[in-house]
Simulated scan of single mutants.
Amino acid sequence: MEDKTVFDLIERLTNNPADKDAAELLPAAYEAARIKRKSITDNLVQKGAPGDKYIEMAKEWMVLKQMYDKIKSSPGANAALPDPWDPSLMIQGANKLAAEDYYNAGMTFLGYNTRQYAQKAYDNFQKASKASPGYKDVDNMLLIAAEKATTRVLVNPVNYNRYTYGYFGFQNDWMQQQMVRDLNARSYANTRFFTEYDLRAQQLVPDKIVDLNFTDLFIDNVHTDSRSYQRSKEIVTGQTKTNPPRQLTQTVYATVTVSRRYMSSYATLECRIYDRETNNNSLYDRFSDRIEWVQERATYTGDRRALTPQDIALISNRWDDYPPNREQLAETLVRKTYQQLLSRISSGVNF
């Protein structure tokens, strides 16, 4: 209430410097606002939390700084109150004290040398930097804390079900590399993903490990079989000359032989994500998919008129559709199971 009164009086004097009532009321209103600020900041000194209390004190003084700036920019208000208090130095001092408290807390947390406390250290260094940019070596300490707070996840090479990836025609371990890229791109908080080569190159030890294992990765060969069935149909061949005429019918027969080529390939990807020290699982699940490839064509003997439209469609088929090769099938199954895994991780796996 005191603040609003002061700002209203300043606005009146800005619009009308000759407003005597506003000029007489402004000093007392300003003093009431200043006393209120002093009461609040004195209480914060006694009871406020380290760091936070200085930020709150600076916010209170910032209100008085806004009053100061408005009074100095208004000839009418400045004439009524020629010597308002400029709290700029107090604000700067409070921010410095806040930065010092936050910085010291960050150093204490960092000394515990755990990921959890490193995160607390990082949060405090951030507050210190915001309160007083460039305070001491806070920028460097932010980098150190961020590194210590990072969970390092090793994505192991994929086990391709008793074979190497080259058996299926892959040029490299596609899934391992893709998983590292995809998960790093998703910006998990304080988490980075590595191959074993990356960790060795940087001399880092993983906190969590991802094992990928195809318990099934079966690429089928083309199988063939055939079956035959009979068709019969009664057809109209004419009519009698009687009155009234009657239809003449005949039963016709055909034998349909269907030849079939087919493949049934399938894969099951097992993924375990676990803590290196405790061996506790963050995820242990399996993801399966299957590809069925079928091609049929037919021949017939007998009377074509006995055939159904479906029979005729099969007879018209040709062996023009070549079966997918081993590499195509394996890559499709790997990608499908991998996408299921990625979706499962996104739905709620905590690293």
Rank of each mutant, 00 (worst) to 15 (best):
residue 337 T to M: 00
residue 294 V to P: 01
residue 328 Q to T: 13
residue 286 R to S: 08
residue 267 A to T: 00
residue 208 K to Q: 15
residue 34 R to T: 11
residue 213 N to R: 09
residue 309 P to R: 09
residue 267 A to V: 03
residue 263 M to P: 00
residue 193 F to T: 09
residue 305 R to H: 09
residue 69 D to Q: 10
residue 65 K to D: 05
residue 260 R to C: 03
residue 22 A to Q: 04
residue 25 L to H: 09
residue 264 S to C: 00
residue 82 P to S: 13
residue 242 T to M: 08
residue 214 F to M: 06
residue 64 L to H: 06
residue 106 G to K: 05
residue 5 T to P: 05
residue 252 V to K: 00
residue 193 F to K: 07
residue 79 A to H: 12
residue 25 L to M: 14
residue 156 N to R: 13
residue 21 D to R: 11
residue 210 V to C: 05
residue 148 K to W: 07
residue 197 Y to H: 09
residue 6 V to F: 11
residue 121 A to E: 05
residue 125 F to A: 01
residue 351 F to V: 12
residue 56 E to P: 05
residue 160 Y to H: 12
residue 163 Y to K: 15
residue 121 A to V: 02
residue 282 S to Q: 06
residue 12 R to N: 12
residue 183 L to D: 07
residue 209 I to F: 04
residue 346 S to L: 15
residue 18 A to L: 06
residue 63 V to N: 08
residue 112 Y to F: 10
residue 203 Q to F: 07
residue 54 Y to N: 05
residue 159 N to Q: 15
residue 41 T to C: 04
residue 313 A to V: 11
residue 279 N to K: 14
residue 330 A to F: 08
residue 129 S to M: 11
residue 293 W to I: 02
residue 311 D to E: 12
residue 279 N to P: 00
residue 136 K to E: 11
residue 225 D to E: 04
residue 273 I to V: 12
residue 167 Y to L: 01
residue 123 D to H: 05
residue 128 A to H: 03
residue 97 L to Y: 10
residue 286 R to T: 14
residue 89 L to F: 11
residue 79 A to C: 05
residue 312 I to W: 04
residue 307 L to I: 13
residue 98 A to E: 04
residue 46 Q to S: 12
residue 93 G to R: 10
residue 241 K to T: 11
residue 9 L to F: 08
residue 30 Y to Q: 02
residue 32 A to Q: 11
residue 44 L to G: 01
residue 162 R to P: 00
residue 43 N to P: 01
residue 307 L to H: 14
residue 293 W to T: 05
residue 301 T to L: 04
residue 258 V to W: 06
residue 91 I to N: 09
residue 145 A to M: 08
residue 278 T to P: 00
residue 332 T to K: 14
residue 43 N to I: 00
residue 24 E to T: 13
residue 134 G to H: 07
residue 19 D to L: 02
residue 282 S to M: 04
residue 296 E to D: 12
residue 10 I to F: 08
residue 289 D to G: 02
residue 60 E to P: 03
residue 100 E to I: 02
residue 68 Y to D: 08
residue 174 W to G: 03
residue 157 P to S: 13
residue 185 A to K: 13
residue 44 L to D: 01
residue 91 I to E: 07
residue 87 P to A: 09
residue 315 I to R: 11
residue 227 R to Q: 01
residue 266 Y to Q: 13
residue 280 N to P: 00
residue 51 G to N: 01
residue 51 G to K: 01
residue 298 A to N: 06
residue 311 D to V: 13
residue 278 T to R: 02
residue 143 L to V: 07
residue 269 L to D: 02
residue 18 A to D: 15
residue 48 G to S: 08
residue 276 R to D: 05
residue 62 M to T: 12
residue 256 V to S: 06
residue 342 L to F: 13
residue 244 P to D: 09
residue 263 M to R: 07
residue 201 A to R: 15
residue 283 L to K: 02
residue 198 D to R: 10
residue 291 I to K: 03
residue 224 T to W: 08
residue 181 R to T: 14
residue 32 A to G: 15
